[in-house]
């Protein structure tokens, strides 16, 4: 009859294990099915020059960051100073996807807060964002030189996350920093 007393304890332990795991997960974090796959193709007008285009061809042959941002996004403002810092370190090119934004507001934002981007694509209707599985800005993709998606971070990018999640992957990919000066 020992099992009668042990069973509630067993059930309790199993439930607790589920709760500990389940409640510590972040429901806002939805893993991207794009990881390890080629980045979705796109071509959009540039934010600063609507007559010229920005697309996957611009990333080709370099390890790059692709950052989804908008002026209506609070988290983007939060991470912006770090992106500017990162761009000044000149270790990795940062491209932007200006998502469902107002062109004038976006240009204003870059001129007043600084422009960390090599170039930003202007996705007015949000089609490209859907192709990239974007659901909440800011999102930052790490792209390999062959165009594979190495990593995706959802939430403002910080120095801590850069060091713990991005740097090891970049170093595994291209050996040393900066990746910019790799010969292709």
């Amino acid at each position: 009859m020992m099992w009668r007393y042990l069973m509630p304890l067993g059930i309790f332990i199993v439930l607790t294990a589920f709760f500990v795991k389940g409640l510590s997960l972040n429901p806002r974090y939805v893993p991207s099915p794009l990881l390890g796959k080629p980045a979705p193709e796109f071509e959009l007008p540039r934010l600063k020059d609507p007559n010229s285009k920005l697309g996957n061809i611009d990333f080709e042959g370099q390890v790059a960051l692709f950052n989804v941002w908008a002026t209506w996004c609070v988290g983007c403002r939060q991470e912006h100073s770090f992106l500017v810092e990162l761009s000044q370190e000149n270790n990795i090119p940062i491209y932007g996807l200006n998502w469902k934004d107002d062109r004038d507001a976006a240009l204003d934002w870059l001129s007043s807060l600084g422009d960390p981007y090599v170039g930003s694509a202007f996705d007015e209707i949000g089609d490209t964002a859907i192709d990239w599985g974007v659901y909440g800005a800011p999102e930052t993709f790490l792209l390999a030189s062959d165009g594979t998606v190495l990593y995706k971070h959802i939430a403002p990018l910080t120095r801590e996350i850069w060091t713990s999640e991005f740097l090891p992957r970049i170093i595994a990919e291209c050996g040393t920093l900066p990746c910019l000066e790799l010969d292709n």
């Binding site: 806002r28 469902k100 949000g126 089609d127 659901y135």
Partner: peptide
């Protein structure tokens, strides 16, 4: 709808839901 996770895109008025 991944913005308002307990809503379907038919229910949600989030911009992403409307895009989808």
């Amino acid at each position: 709808c991944l913005v308002c996770q307990n809503q379907t895109i038919a229910d949600s008025n989030a911009p992403l839901a409307s895009d989808l």
